[in-house]
Design a binder for these strands. Structure first.
Lengths: 219, 219
DNA sequence: ATCATAAATAACTATTTAGTTATATCAAGA
DNA sequence: TCTTGATATAACTAAATAGTTATTTATGAT
């Protein structure tokens, strides 16, 4: 009978609580999440959660900052700075799609924070730091494409970032109601493949000049 | 002292409860909504809510069906069937934008239902009926544009519907976190005007052939 | 008029929940 | 080895919450 050995490992305990919180907040939102469920899933207990994180909302904020940080890190790791602009854009659209698909908790956590009008991250220094250079990378990519006479000039990098995220995020966050409204399984392998292809095409049509598009068509 | 006259008007009471529920569910989601708050806002009481609607989740389902119905009705009322295809598409994109902007509860209610994997409307006959003809109208519009050699042929109407919604919905549902990430007020009058213009341009670039786009540019 | 029924209100209950108090146990430094 | 502080657990509490029971009151049919 494995006697319950009480291991002391504050870092590991914190990590387990954060991981459990991410699952629970993603599944039920901030309001629907239960601190007892988080403690149980972390194989810890409520008192530890309050000891390390103070309260439920602080824990939520830390989880949210973490998932944003992971997303930004992954995007940065793409290293698109020296890719050919059209290739880079294709990769960026695919990256967004794959990331949201593989990390569905990102979507539900962000949705939950927006329901609360972003009050938890509003004054977060860490969020602000993370966001820096994020738009800058898109701007640089658009500039390179424009210089090579591939893209339209004067494209707004923020609008592009939002749109690139939107066409993936919206499809996936509303996949349940969407599957009912459109009377088809939006999550079937074929549906997912088709949507990604459509999204890549969409973004290229937004940024490329008519001449570039003609060239792409006849390739 | 206005003696509290007890007016009896079941239809009006039901209507007030539904209206109050819409506000409360939109503000706090299904989980965060409080039945006491709904009853108070409706200037009725909890017992009436349970009398007429059975339970909180049924009330939620009815509210959700209602906001979907309103949205579909409004879209139908646009009567785009005989408009010139490009004009019709511009109007459709603007309609989506304006509707989400003027009816923010639609967005939060749909988000809440997706957090719950659409379980409340999954077997709703009314939802299924509403969705009919919805894709059909987009398909007809795309067909007309293609026949007039304005649009690409073989555009997928469902993908278009989703994208038209996405570029508006995503911007607005994530406006709070977005305003932090992009370090600008996404809801300023100028930002809203710019986004709508960008969205119209986006959709035209998706559907129009390079030739049509060239013509539009030089107009 | 009066009766039956539906509409409305208020007070109540059993549970759930975030957060706390009290207590035990480990491990590192003196 | 003893002490001290950090780590862990369990039992508790006050408030909140969905749903009910008990009671009153208006209204339309007879």
């Amino acid at each position: 009978m494995a006697a319950k050995k009480q291991l002391r490992d504050p870092e590991e305990t914190k990590r387990r609580i954060m991981a459990a919180a991410k699952v629970e907040f993603a599944k039920s939102g901030l309001g629907g999440a239960r601190v007892d469920v988080i403690a149980a899933r972390a194989k810890s207990n409520k008192r530890m959660m309050y000891h390390y994180f103070g309260n439920k909302e602080t824990l939520f904020r830390l989880v949210l900052e973490d998932v944003y940080a992971d997303f930004r890190e992954a995007e940065k790791a793409l290293e698109l700075d020296h890719e050919e602009p059209i290739v880079a854009l294709r990769k960026l659209v695919s990256f967004n799609w794959d990331y949201f698909l593989e990390n569905p908790e990102f979507i539900t956590l962000v949705n939950s924070e927006n329901l609360h009008k972003a009050k938890h991250i509003k004054s977060s220094k860490r969020m602000q730091e993370m966001s820096r250079n994020f738009v800058g990378r898109m701007q640089a990519l658009l500039d390179r494409g424009a210089e090579a006479n591939l893209f339209h000039k004067n494209l707004d990098a923020v609008q592009m970032q939002i749109s690139v995220a939107a066409i993936a995020y919206h499809y996936l966050t509303n996949r349940y109601t969407g599957s009912i409204v459109f009377e088809r399984d939006l999550m079937s392998a074929k549906a997912l493949k088709d949507r990604l292809a459509f999204n890549i095409q969409t973004v290229l049509r937004i940024v490329c000049t008519p001449e570039t598009l003609r060239k792409l068509e006849t390739e």
